[in-house]
């Protein structure tokens, strides 16, 4: 494998969501939200447009409320670094249906590509493992993404996967950003009742 050929974020997310079945998705602000929108809008996507640091704890609350459905919290390295304690909270609760997946480009892409702590050696996989999450080895190729896509539906969580992706911004694909609309359509799709 060519170690310099870092993964394309859009391809990664498209692959993870290609056969999503019952998967509920929470995406972190910025590029992760655009990546999920680019893979195809769905009422079962809850896109964060702010609330930085909130992806993982929001996904935990959802996973505990919907234990029979797989829940994916997908976000960037900057978002998860803002709230690493959430990994400890998730590890303590141990929900089998929850996966946290990080698209790690080692930078704050939205704000001028400033290097994040992962660029300086912070090992998110090791942190997740030490927080009692079931962390897969860092993913650097599409074979790893393929395997992860299946594991999202297999239980056995709380799962954690750090995916190293290429720097550089993809074209922005903007999903709806009206909060009450996003929450109402999500809840109706998942719980089946209008709030």
């Amino acid at each position: 494998m060519n170690a310099t050929a870092l993964l394309d974020r859009r391809q990664v997310v498209a692959r993870l969501l290609a056969d999503r079945r019952e998967l509920l998705v929470v995406s972190g602000l910025g590029s992760a939200t655009y990546d999920c929108a680019a893979a195809g809008d769905d009422p079962r996507n809850f896109y964060l447009w702010g609330a930085m640091g909130g992806t993982a704890p929001l996904a935990l609350g959802l996973a505990l409320a919907q234990p029979d459905k797989p829940v994916l919290g997908i976000t960037g390295d900057g978002d998860i670094l803002m709230g690493l304690g959430a990994l400890s909270t998730i590890g303590a609760q141990g929900p089998a249906n929850l996966a946290i997946v990080i698209l790690d480009n080692e930078m704050y892409g939205e704000t001028g590509a400033q290097p994040s702590a992962t660029a300086h050696g912070t090992d998110l996989t090791a942190i997740a493992r030490a927080s009692r999450m079931n962390a897969v080895d860092e993913i650097t190729d599409m074979a790893g993404v393929d395997a992860l896509a299946e594991r999202l539906h297999a239980g056995g969580g709380p799962l954690f996967a750090n995916i190293k992706i290429a720097p550089g911004e993809a074209e922005r694909v903007l999903p709806p950003r009206d909060g009450p609309y996003l929450r109402s359509r999500f809840r109706e799709a998942v719980v089946g009742q209008a709030p």
Binding site: L24, L58, L60, G61, A65, R183, V191
Partner: peptide, 8 residues
């Protein structure tokens, strides 16, 4: 927020 989105 996540709990409520899931019906709890």
């Amino acid at each position: 927020a996540g709990a409520w989105l899931g019906g709890d």
